[in-house]
Design a protein around this nucleic acid. Structure first.
Lengths: 108, 108
DNA sequence: TGACTATTTGGCTATTTTGCCAAATAGATT
DNA sequence: AATCTATTTGGCAAAATAGCCAAATAGTCA
């Protein structure tokens, strides 16, 4: 794998990594519904505001969400809704996995 | 976020995380073409065979790839091809990000 | 059986990630 | 200006991840 190819996969991995956390996946789902400010999300996930701020920062740094400051609050919104489409595939992975176990058990 | 909801997002995150690594994304792409054995992939990514074996183990543990032993070799193949579809969205994220920078620069 | 090959696993270190607290920053209000 | 609120950032410790070497395992073939 040469240098330029590797760089391409590193960029992709960075985007995947930004989503690869339960709290961040939850946040993306919430932002799909409507924009939210930091403390609102912090209450929902029951984590420190600073922790949520860092999660949001990660999502924003790869461009998945957008931020807009209004007054003292910062409202975050989903910039790239197609990430929601991944979920159906994730469910597919889970189904395939369940099926595999069924087959494995069936063979006993 | 209650317990059962959290558990659901943790499962999803585990699947995302399995893909959130440049080497593993590369491997998935290669397996989309055709099945490969461990050493074949190790040569391609220029990493230790044991390292690649562990990457494959992660992908298999969440059900994304399948393994089949034939002789002394183990052939891996892509079980859930829909993960390939994520790439077009990843490209979309990158484009949105590029556009954001363009606008930002344009406003200077 | 014994040697050989392919893969996995144990053990280790280095690096990254996570989450909290405390402090800093930015904007609004009096 | 002083204060108050919302958010971000510095710093830290705990946990997870990555990669390599060496050793163990599983299968093949003489």
């Amino acid at each position: 794998m040469n240098c330029v190819i590797r760089a391409r996969y590193e960029v992709r991995a960075r985007i995947m990594k930004a989503l690869a956390h339960p709290t961040r996946l939850f946040i993306v789902d919430q932002l799909a519904e409507r924009e939210r400010c930091v403390q609102e999300l912090a209450e929902m996930v029951e984590a420190d505001v600073s922790t949520v701020s860092r999660h949001l920062s990660q999502l924003r740094s790869v461009g998945i969400i957008a931020d807009e400051k209004r007054g003292t609050q910062v409202f975050y919104s989903l910039r790239v809704p197609c990430v929601l489409g991944w979920q159906s595939c994730v469910e597919g992975v889970l189904e395939a996995e369940a099926e595999r176990h069924t087959i494995a058990l069936g063979r006993v």
